[in-house]
């Protein structure tokens, strides 16, 4: 396909797609890898911190445990405040060049990208998970303690499944933000979608056409991700139908009851 300065907009877009598709593809791939692993690792960090920060301290807790928890809590709070309070782009520069200069560690750009996105997401998720845990009705904890379950058992079997179900929308938010925000990692030479688009634009001297394509690719990625997570949300909600067991021996006696729980899932 031949193009020149007078070619139409559509011709240029088609030409760029035809000539630069491997760049876009590789860029999108790196963006997805970094944002997916960053979100997952960040989520795990967040869950861990959320659990630690909601360990109950009462007058039964011995002094040593109380002091240890206070110190850990202080450090976690510093971590959360620092990483929420500074731009990810700046963190990327500080960590990537700082680790090379001070410790002589040369991270690969992709590793650095995953690392930075993870700890950043972790700082946000920590607060989201904490919010999810404290929003669970106190009665759930009490009922669980009343049948003799320990705090750890209560968290794992009762509270976290409910809390995580409730914070899934926030998790999908974080994922979408990460897909878009990995674009700032081009400052440390991560060859993600924005970086690759810049190359493609430079090759062709066509910025509008290239970045319009980039825009569409970003949107396809974020839209797909939100749809997939919405599907999981619905899955976790469980079926809106349950079976009445008319008789243990006669399966025909079973009746399906639909309760429309999808809408009223939160009602007690």
């Amino acid at each position: 396909m031949a193009v020149d300065a007078n070619s139409s907009f559509i011709t240029w877009v088609l030409y760029i797609l035809q000539s630069s598709w491997p760049l876009f593809l590789r860029g999108a791939q790196v963006t997805l890898i970094i944002s997916l692993s960053g979100t997952i690792i960040g989520f795990l960090i967040g869950v861990l911190i959320g659990i630690i920060r909601t360990i109950p301290i009462d007058h039964n807790t011995n002094l040593f445990k109380r002091i240890v928890l206070k110190i850990i809590d202080y450090f976690l709070l510093c971590y959360i405040e620092v990483f929420r309070g500074t731009p990810m782009m700046v963190q990327a520069m500080v960590i990537f060049y700082g680790s090379a200069m001070i410790y002589g560690i040369r991270m690969s750009p992709i590793f650095a990208g995953v690392f930075i996105v993870s700890i950043n997401t972790g700082a946000y998720m920590a607060e989201i998970v904490r919010g999810g845990i404290i929003s669970i009705d106190k009665g759930q904890f009490e009922a669980s303690h009343a049948i003799g379950m320990t705090h750890a058992q209560t968290m794992i079997s009762i509270v976290l499944p409910q809390a995580i179900r409730n914070i899934l929308p926030a998790l999908s938010n974080e994922f979408v933000i990460n897909i878009k925000d990995t674009s700032v990692l081009n400052v440390i030479g991560v060859t993600e979608l924005y970086f690759q688009s810049n190359s493609a634009a430079g090759n062709n001297f066509r910025y509008f056409e290239v970045f319009l394509i980039t825009c569409i690719i970003y949107f396809i990625m974020t839209f797909t991700v939100t749809r997939i997570l919405r599907y999981f949300e619905a899955k976790l909600e469980g079926p809106s139908v349950y079976t009445i067991h008319g008789s243990q021996t006669v399966p025909e006696a079973e009746i399906k009851i639909s309760t429309g729980s999808k809408k009223n899932g939160k009602n007690h």
């Binding site: 009705d137 009665g139 759930q140 009490e142 009922a143 669980s144 009343a146 049948i147 009762i158 007690h268």
Partner: peptide, 12 residues
């Protein structure tokens, strides 16, 4: 065993 006013069944 304890039975609560608000039932407190495990919602999950």
């Amino acid at each position: 065993g304890m039975v609560f006013q608000q039932f407190n069944l495990f919602n999950n």
